[in-house]
Amino acid sequence: MVDKSEKFNWLVRVGYFSRAILYSVLGMIALTSAGKISEGTNGIFMAVEDFPAGQYILWLMVLGLAAYAMFRFASPIFDIENEGSDKTGWAKRIGHAGSGIGHIALAYSAYQFASTGSASGGGAQAAASGVLSFDFGGIVLGILGGAFIATAFFQFKKGLSGSFMNRISAQAPSATRWLGGAGYAARGVVYAVIGWSLINAGLLSGGSESVKTLGDAVASLAGEGAVFTVTAAGLLVFGLFSFVLARYRIIPELDADAGIPKFRS
Protein backbone atom coordinates (compact mmCIF):
# COMPACT_ATOMS: atom_id res chain seq x y z
CA MET A 1 0.00 0.00 0.00
CA VAL A 2 1.27 3.47 -0.91
CA ASP A 3 0.22 6.22 1.48
CA LYS A 4 -0.36 9.76 0.35
CA SER A 5 1.36 12.23 2.66
CA GLU A 6 0.75 15.91 3.18
CA LYS A 7 4.02 16.48 1.30
CA PHE A 8 2.57 14.76 -1.75
CA ASN A 9 -0.57 16.90 -1.50
CA TRP A 10 1.53 20.06 -1.22
CA LEU A 11 3.77 19.09 -4.15
CA VAL A 12 0.77 18.43 -6.41
CA ARG A 13 -0.60 21.89 -5.60
CA VAL A 14 2.79 23.44 -6.38
CA GLY A 15 2.61 21.48 -9.64
CA TYR A 16 -0.74 23.02 -10.55
CA PHE A 17 0.63 26.45 -9.62
CA SER A 18 3.64 25.90 -11.91
CA ARG A 19 1.35 24.73 -14.69
CA ALA A 20 -0.69 27.89 -14.18
CA ILE A 21 2.43 30.03 -14.70
CA LEU A 22 3.43 27.99 -17.75
CA TYR A 23 0.11 28.29 -19.59
CA SER A 24 -0.53 31.89 -18.55
CA VAL A 25 2.86 32.96 -19.90
CA LEU A 26 2.38 30.85 -23.03
CA GLY A 27 -0.98 32.49 -23.73
CA MET A 28 0.34 35.98 -23.04
CA ILE A 29 3.41 35.74 -25.25
CA ALA A 30 1.40 34.08 -28.03
CA LEU A 31 -0.98 37.06 -27.99
CA THR A 32 1.59 39.81 -27.52
CA SER A 33 5.07 38.70 -28.62
CA ALA A 34 5.54 37.08 -32.02
CA GLY A 35 9.31 36.99 -31.49
CA LYS A 36 9.17 34.93 -28.32
CA ILE A 37 6.44 32.53 -29.43
CA SER A 38 8.53 31.78 -32.52
CA GLU A 39 11.12 30.34 -30.09
CA GLY A 40 8.59 27.68 -29.15
CA THR A 41 8.78 26.28 -25.61
CA ASN A 42 12.07 28.08 -24.96
CA GLY A 43 10.21 31.35 -25.46
CA ILE A 44 8.08 30.60 -22.40
CA PHE A 45 11.09 30.27 -20.13
CA MET A 46 12.80 33.26 -21.75
CA ALA A 47 9.74 35.32 -20.79
CA VAL A 48 9.71 33.96 -17.23
CA GLU A 49 13.42 34.66 -16.90
CA ASP A 50 12.71 38.35 -17.62
CA PHE A 51 10.19 38.59 -14.75
CA PRO A 52 11.20 40.16 -11.42
CA ALA A 53 12.64 37.27 -9.37
CA GLY A 54 12.52 35.25 -12.60
CA GLN A 55 15.24 32.83 -11.47
CA TYR A 56 13.29 31.94 -8.33
CA ILE A 57 10.12 31.43 -10.38
CA LEU A 58 12.03 29.13 -12.76
CA TRP A 59 13.29 26.98 -9.88
CA LEU A 60 9.74 26.81 -8.50
CA MET A 61 8.59 25.66 -11.93
CA VAL A 62 11.30 22.97 -12.02
CA LEU A 63 9.98 21.55 -8.74
CA GLY A 64 6.32 22.03 -9.61
CA LEU A 65 6.40 20.63 -13.14
CA ALA A 66 8.35 17.58 -11.97
CA ALA A 67 5.85 17.07 -9.13
CA TYR A 68 2.91 17.41 -11.52
CA ALA A 69 4.53 14.84 -13.83
CA MET A 70 4.85 12.39 -10.93
CA PHE A 71 1.17 12.93 -10.14
CA ARG A 72 0.25 12.13 -13.76
CA PHE A 73 2.44 9.00 -13.72
CA ALA A 74 0.57 7.82 -10.60
CA SER A 75 -2.57 7.45 -12.75
CA PRO A 76 -1.42 4.54 -14.97
CA ILE A 77 0.52 2.94 -12.10
CA PHE A 78 -1.95 3.25 -9.19
CA ASP A 79 -5.12 4.49 -10.96
CA ILE A 80 -5.56 7.10 -8.23
CA GLU A 81 -8.20 8.85 -10.35
CA ASN A 82 -10.18 5.57 -10.58
CA GLU A 83 -10.40 5.67 -14.36
CA GLY A 84 -10.76 1.89 -14.42
CA SER A 85 -9.18 -0.87 -16.52
CA ASP A 86 -11.54 -0.96 -19.50
CA LYS A 87 -10.55 0.50 -22.88
CA THR A 88 -11.73 4.00 -22.00
CA GLY A 89 -10.03 3.89 -18.61
CA TRP A 90 -6.71 2.76 -20.06
CA ALA A 91 -6.91 5.37 -22.83
CA LYS A 92 -7.22 8.06 -20.14
CA ARG A 93 -4.46 6.55 -18.02
CA ILE A 94 -2.08 6.28 -20.99
CA GLY A 95 -2.95 9.88 -21.83
CA HIS A 96 -1.97 10.85 -18.29
CA ALA A 97 1.35 9.05 -18.80
CA GLY A 98 1.90 11.06 -21.98
CA SER A 99 1.16 14.22 -20.01
CA GLY A 100 3.70 13.10 -17.42
CA ILE A 101 6.38 12.64 -20.09
CA GLY A 102 5.61 16.07 -21.52
CA HIS A 103 5.81 17.78 -18.15
CA ILE A 104 9.08 16.04 -17.27
CA ALA A 105 10.51 17.47 -20.50
CA LEU A 106 9.19 20.92 -19.54
CA ALA A 107 10.70 20.58 -16.06
CA TYR A 108 14.07 19.76 -17.63
CA SER A 109 13.87 22.81 -19.93
CA ALA A 110 13.02 24.99 -16.93
CA TYR A 111 16.01 23.48 -15.09
CA GLN A 112 18.32 24.36 -17.98
CA PHE A 113 17.15 27.96 -17.97
CA ALA A 114 17.31 28.21 -14.17
CA SER A 115 20.83 26.78 -13.96
CA THR A 116 22.47 28.13 -17.13
CA GLY A 117 20.19 30.86 -18.47
CA SER A 118 19.54 28.97 -21.71
CA ALA A 119 18.38 25.62 -23.03
CA SER A 120 19.85 23.44 -25.72
CA GLY A 121 17.73 23.51 -28.84
CA GLY A 122 16.19 20.51 -30.50
CA GLY A 123 15.85 18.47 -27.32
CA ALA A 124 12.54 16.94 -28.34
CA GLN A 125 13.81 16.11 -31.82
CA ALA A 126 17.02 14.60 -30.41
CA ALA A 127 14.95 12.42 -28.08
CA ALA A 128 12.70 11.37 -30.97
CA SER A 129 15.76 10.52 -33.10
CA GLY A 130 17.09 8.41 -30.24
CA VAL A 131 13.82 6.47 -30.05
CA LEU A 132 13.79 6.00 -33.84
CA SER A 133 17.27 4.46 -33.68
CA PHE A 134 15.82 1.43 -31.88
CA ASP A 135 13.86 -1.40 -33.49
CA PHE A 136 10.17 -0.49 -33.55
CA GLY A 137 11.08 3.05 -32.43
CA GLY A 138 8.69 4.51 -34.98
CA ILE A 139 5.88 2.43 -33.51
CA VAL A 140 6.75 3.71 -30.03
CA LEU A 141 6.52 7.32 -31.21
CA GLY A 142 3.29 6.49 -33.02
CA ILE A 143 1.79 5.00 -29.86
CA LEU A 144 2.85 8.05 -27.85
CA GLY A 145 1.31 10.26 -30.53
CA GLY A 146 -1.88 8.23 -30.29
CA ALA A 147 -1.87 8.79 -26.52
CA PHE A 148 -1.67 12.54 -27.08
CA ILE A 149 -4.50 12.36 -29.63
CA ALA A 150 -6.59 10.40 -27.12
CA THR A 151 -5.75 12.99 -24.46
CA ALA A 152 -6.81 15.76 -26.85
CA PHE A 153 -10.17 14.02 -27.34
CA PHE A 154 -10.71 13.77 -23.58
CA GLN A 155 -9.67 17.42 -23.14
CA PHE A 156 -12.42 18.48 -25.56
CA LYS A 157 -14.88 16.11 -23.88
CA LYS A 158 -14.07 17.46 -20.40
CA GLY A 159 -14.38 21.02 -21.61
CA LEU A 160 -17.81 20.41 -23.14
CA SER A 161 -19.26 18.20 -20.38
CA GLY A 162 -17.81 20.04 -17.40
CA SER A 163 -16.95 16.68 -15.81
CA PHE A 164 -13.76 18.21 -14.39
CA MET A 165 -15.94 20.02 -11.84
CA ASN A 166 -16.37 16.69 -10.01
CA ARG A 167 -12.73 17.00 -8.97
CA ILE A 168 -12.96 20.57 -7.70
CA SER A 169 -14.13 21.77 -4.30
CA ALA A 170 -17.57 23.39 -4.14
CA GLN A 171 -15.85 26.42 -2.62
CA ALA A 172 -14.18 27.26 -5.95
CA PRO A 173 -15.19 30.56 -7.68
CA SER A 174 -18.36 30.48 -9.78
CA ALA A 175 -16.39 31.27 -12.96
CA THR A 176 -14.44 27.99 -12.66
CA ARG A 177 -16.79 26.09 -15.01
CA TRP A 178 -16.35 28.40 -18.00
CA LEU A 179 -12.64 28.94 -17.34
CA GLY A 180 -12.09 25.19 -17.43
CA GLY A 181 -14.33 24.65 -20.44
CA ALA A 182 -12.50 27.21 -22.59
CA GLY A 183 -9.09 26.15 -21.29
CA TYR A 184 -9.56 22.43 -21.91
CA ALA A 185 -10.77 23.10 -25.47
CA ALA A 186 -7.65 25.16 -26.24
CA ARG A 187 -5.44 22.53 -24.64
CA GLY A 188 -7.13 19.89 -26.77
CA VAL A 189 -6.06 21.75 -29.91
CA VAL A 190 -2.43 21.89 -28.74
CA TYR A 191 -2.35 18.23 -27.67
CA ALA A 192 -3.76 17.20 -31.05
CA VAL A 193 -0.96 19.11 -32.82
CA ILE A 194 1.68 17.46 -30.61
CA GLY A 195 0.14 14.02 -31.12
CA TRP A 196 0.02 14.40 -34.90
CA SER A 197 3.67 15.52 -34.96
CA LEU A 198 4.66 12.34 -33.08
CA ILE A 199 2.64 10.11 -35.41
CA ASN A 200 4.02 11.91 -38.45
CA ALA A 201 7.63 11.62 -37.23
CA GLY A 202 7.31 8.01 -36.10
CA LEU A 203 5.14 6.37 -38.74
CA LEU A 204 4.69 8.58 -41.79
CA SER A 205 7.82 10.59 -42.51
CA GLY A 206 10.56 8.28 -41.27
CA GLY A 207 11.80 10.88 -38.80
CA SER A 208 12.22 13.66 -41.36
CA GLU A 209 9.50 15.75 -39.70
CA SER A 210 10.16 17.42 -36.33
CA VAL A 211 8.41 16.57 -33.09
CA LYS A 212 6.58 19.51 -31.55
CA THR A 213 6.67 20.49 -27.89
CA LEU A 214 4.06 22.66 -26.14
CA GLY A 215 5.36 26.01 -27.33
CA ASP A 216 6.26 24.67 -30.77
CA ALA A 217 2.69 23.43 -31.23
CA VAL A 218 1.30 26.88 -30.48
CA ALA A 219 3.89 28.56 -32.72
CA SER A 220 2.89 26.24 -35.58
CA LEU A 221 -0.63 27.69 -35.43
CA ALA A 222 0.62 31.27 -35.83
CA GLY A 223 -0.43 31.45 -39.47
CA GLU A 224 -3.94 30.16 -38.82
CA GLY A 225 -5.55 33.52 -38.01
CA ALA A 226 -8.55 33.21 -35.71
CA VAL A 227 -7.67 29.63 -34.76
CA PHE A 228 -4.34 30.84 -33.36
CA THR A 229 -5.86 33.81 -31.53
CA VAL A 230 -8.68 31.79 -29.96
CA THR A 231 -6.30 28.98 -28.97
CA ALA A 232 -3.80 31.43 -27.44
CA ALA A 233 -6.56 33.17 -25.48
CA GLY A 234 -7.85 29.76 -24.36
CA LEU A 235 -4.41 28.77 -23.09
CA LEU A 236 -4.23 31.98 -21.08
CA VAL A 237 -7.63 31.13 -19.62
CA PHE A 238 -6.38 27.59 -18.88
CA GLY A 239 -3.53 29.17 -16.93
CA LEU A 240 -6.04 31.11 -14.83
CA PHE A 241 -8.05 27.91 -14.37
CA SER A 242 -4.90 26.14 -13.17
CA PHE A 243 -4.45 28.79 -10.47
CA VAL A 244 -7.93 27.82 -9.24
CA LEU A 245 -6.94 24.14 -9.30
CA ALA A 246 -3.82 24.87 -7.25
CA ARG A 247 -6.15 25.91 -4.43
CA TYR A 248 -9.36 23.94 -4.95
CA ARG A 249 -8.47 20.71 -6.78
CA ILE A 250 -9.43 17.58 -4.79
CA ILE A 251 -6.26 15.47 -4.55
CA PRO A 252 -7.16 11.74 -4.45
CA GLU A 253 -5.53 9.33 -2.03
CA LEU A 254 -2.39 7.53 -3.18
CA ASP A 255 -3.74 4.34 -1.64
CA ALA A 256 -4.89 1.27 -3.54
CA ASP A 257 -7.13 0.28 -0.60
CA ALA A 258 -8.77 3.68 -0.20
CA GLY A 259 -11.62 2.85 -2.59
CA ILE A 260 -13.29 5.20 -5.01
CA PRO A 261 -12.60 8.87 -4.22
CA LYS A 262 -15.62 10.83 -3.00
CA PHE A 263 -15.74 12.87 -6.20
CA ARG A 264 -16.18 9.64 -8.24
CA SER A 265 -18.70 7.91 -5.96
Rank of each mutant, 00 (worst) to 15 (best):
S133D: 12
M28R: 14
G202D: 02
Y108I: 15
A114T: 07
I77T: 08
F153A: 12
I143F: 12
I44F: 04
G195I: 05
I80N: 10
E6I: 15
V218K: 00
L63E: 11
A107N: 06
W196L: 03
M70H: 03
Y68W: 04
E253Y: 06
Y23S: 07
D255T: 10
S18Y: 01
N200H: 05
I139S: 07
F263K: 00
A172M: 07
I250M: 08
G188Y: 01
F134T: 12
T41L: 03
G138D: 06
F238H: 01
Q155F: 13
I44A: 02
F263W: 09
P252L: 06
S208L: 03
A201H: 01
L58Q: 00
S38N: 11
K158V: 04
L160F: 09
L63W: 01
K92N: 10
W10G: 15
M165Q: 06
G195L: 04
K87F: 15
A128F: 00
V62Q: 02
I94A: 08
K262T: 14
S118A: 14
K158T: 13
I251V: 10
R13N: 12
G239A: 11
S220K: 04
G181E: 05
S33P: 09
N42C: 14
A192K: 01
G239D: 07
F154E: 13
V2F: 14
R93E: 04
